[in-house]
Structures are given as structure tokens and as C-alpha cells.
């Protein structure tokens, strides 16, 4: 990789090049900071504690789904076509939320409703793991197929209708506060912390990275590559069902159209890697990317920029960040 350095004219301008590299490496964080500063200076109430904690809570659903995808990308490699990918996450959320709403409305106990909902997510993860790792199907196609299967099951269960539901758990997630912060914000941050500990500070995490980035080396070192990749799909499935509780709290039940979240989830998970200096997918990167998107939507609204513009500007920002990151890829 270091030979690429000469391609950008480094030998003649070493100081300038170092500066450029630094700028590119921290480009995403700088962009994030700039956006926050601009909103802080221009958008009324942007920095109010209620607004900031609202954005964190609003980010919980997309963020936890994106954590699931990040784990799969860590375990399978970040190549969009041949690496790890789970396109069934949003559909998983839809089905899991529908399962929870149905069980809860049918009078099942809180423990069994929660357990079966988590089991639903794990089963979807296991299915994805089996087809990707066991049958060696490309994850792009395999999880696309499971996405359709799961979305179909959701339609059968809900008949494409909203299933309102209410439970102490959902009330706690919707209205609960701790230290003045909404419960969903805590859920999001705690899940982020646990997964960061798992991926960055445990033997499992270190090996998951090894399996994803250097599968041949990992195999040669005797690591059970298939098992690690399978486990990443299981964790991803679990994230889908965890996010479904947040979604059920947010929408007071299960709602249709959860599949629409998929593109945002994919964008956030891949955007997350530009927050890492080495462009590796990471839970903290995904956390920052989720918050970036959340603050963008929030800031635009507070600035009364027509919502018609939000998607366009978001797209341009993502394009800029990704473009600078690919420049960086070519330079390191």
C-alpha cells in the first residue's frame, strides 16, 4: 500500500502530503464537527439538552440495526459484493415487531413474548448464517432472498396492517427516563457500549476482525472461520429483534413499511467505516454515523429547510465523505 503514496506526489511535497493525509483521515470527524458547529450556531434550540437526547433516542432503531450489519461486515469483510452483508435486517425488525405485538395482544406473558421475539431474530440470523456460511451463497443474494421470505411472513402475520399494542416494557421504552435522558437513548448507548466491548476488547472481537479481513491467514492460524462468520449473523439477527422493541415502543405497536429502513441502515453501516482512521467497520464508527444522520435530519428541521431538501443534502454529504475516504484508501 505504501507504494501508492508516490502516486499522489508525496516524495516532492512530504509535509503537504502528510497534512493532506491527516485531513483525509480525520475528514469524517471534521465534517461531523463542522456540521454540529453550524447547526449549533444557526439552528434555534439545537444545543438544548432535550433536543440532543431526543436525537440520540431517535437514532436507536436505525443505529441498532446498523450495529447488526456492522458485525456482519466485520466478520465477512467489507467488500460489498463478496464480503459480509445482511439485507434482511429491516425485514427482521418488521417481523420481530409483528411477532411481539401479536403475542402481547394475544395475552402471552411478558417473559414469553420477549423471549419468542428474541428467538425470532435469532432464527432469522441462523437462517442467514446457514445459507451464507453453510451453503456458501453470496450474502448479497442469500440475504436478499431471506429478506423477501421474512417480509412475506410479516405480511401473513399482519395482513399488511398496523398492529397497535401496549405493554409495561413498551411504556418504559417510550416514556421512561433515567438521569433525565430518555430510555431509548440509554438502550442505544448501552447496546453500543456492549458491542464495542465485544468487538474491540475481547478475544472474540479480535478474531472476528481477523476472520473478516484475512480469512486465509485466520484459517491458517486454525481459527474456525465458518463458526465466527455464522456467529456474526446470529448477532445481527439478535440486533434486528432488539431494534424491534425500540420500534414497537416508538410506533406503539408494529407498523408496515419497515423495509424502507434498509437503505439507511446500509448507508450508515458503510458510512461508519470512514470514522475509523484505517477505514475499518466498527461499532463506534457506526454509532457516530447514525448520530451524524440523526443530527442532519434534526438540524434541517430546526432550520426550517424544506424536508424536500433533506434527502438530497444527505446524499451529497455521504458522497463527499465517501469520496474523501476513497482518496484516503488510495493514499495509505
Amino acid at each position: 500500500m505504501s507504494t501508492d503514496l508516490s502516486l499522489v506526489g508525496a516524495p516532492t511535497l512530504p509535509a503537504a502530503n502528510r497534512w493532506q493525509l491527516k485531513l483525509l483521515r480525520h475528514g469524517a470527524s471534521l465534517a461531523f464537527l463542522t456540521i454540529l458547529l453550524v447547526f449549533a450556531a444557526t439552528a434555534p434550540n439545537f444545543l438544548s439538552p432535550t433536543n440532543l437526547s431526543n436525537v440520540v433516542a431517535q437514532s436507536a432503531i436505525l443505529g441498532i440495526l446498523a450495529f447488526g450489519l456492522t458485525l456482519v461486515i466485520i466478520g465477512g469483510g467489507s467488500n460489498v459484493v463478496s464480503g459480509g452483508l445482511d439485507l434482511s435486517l429491516a425485514a427482521n425488525l418488521g417481523l420481530s415487531a409483528a411477532v411481539y405485538a401479536t403475542l402481547n395482544n394475544a395475552g402471552a406473558s411478558a417473559a414469553s413474548s420477549i423471549a419468542l421475539t428474541l428467538a425470532c431474530g435469532l432464527a432469522i440470523g441462523a437462517l442467514n448464517g446457514l445459507v451464507v456460511v453453510g451453503l456458501r451463497l453470496p450474502p448479497l443474494l442469500a440475504t436478499l432472498a431471506s429478506m423477501n421470505l421474512i417480509a412475506g411472513l410479516e405480511l401473513v402475520l399482519t395482513e399488511n396492517t398496523v398492529l397497535p399494542t401496549d405493554s409495561p416494557l413498551l411504556d418504559l421504552l417510550s416514556f421512561g427516563q433515567w438521569l433525565g435522558q430518555p430510555a431509548l437513548a440509554w438502550v442505544f448507548l448501552v447496546v453500543a457500549l456492549l458491542l464495542t466491548l465485544l468487538t474491540q476488547f475481547s478475544r472474540y472481537g479480535l478474531r472476528l476482525y481477523a476472520v473478516g479481513e484475512y480469512p486465509e491467514a485466520a484459517t491458517a492460524a486454525g481459527l474456525p472461520v465458518a463458526s465466527y462468520q455464522f456467529s456474526s449473523y446470529l448477532l445481527s439477527g439478535l440486533c434486528g429483534s432488539l431494534a424491534s422493541f425500540c420500534s414497537a415502543a416508538w410506533f406503539s405497536g408494529s407498523t408496515t413499511g419497515s423495509g424502507e429502513m434498509l437503505l439507511s441502515v446500509v448507508a450508515i453501516a458503510f458510512l461508519g467505516s470512514v470514522f475509523s482512521q484505517r477505514l475499518r467497520p466498527s461499532i463506534t464508527g457506526t454509532l457516530l454515523a447514525t448520530l451524524l444522520v440523526g443530527f442532519l435530519v434534526n438540524g434541517f428541521q430546526l432550520l426550517n429547510i424544506s424536508s424536500f431538501w433533506v434527502n438530497g443534502v444527505q446524499g451529497v454529504l455521504i458522497l463527499l465523505v465517501v469520496a474523501s475516504s476513497s482518496l484516503l484508501r488510495g493514499s495509505v
Binding site: N54, N304, S307
Partner: peptide
């Protein structure tokens, strides 16, 4: 008056987020 326009694009998540932000926006 000044309209604050919020189109959720038939996305429930966007709609709820926008409604929640209105509490801050006052």
C-alpha cells in the same frame, strides 16, 4: 405567517421523528 414544512414521505419513522422534533422547535 411562516410555514415550517414537514413531509414524512409516507415513512412512519420520519413522521414520528418530525413530530418529536416539533416539541423542541416550538
Amino acid at each position: 405567517g411562516t410555514p415550517i414544512t414537514l413531509d414524512a414521505g409516507r415513512n412512519d419513522k420520519a413522521m414520528v421523528t418530525q413530530l418529536q422534533n416539533l416539541v423542541t422547535q416550538k
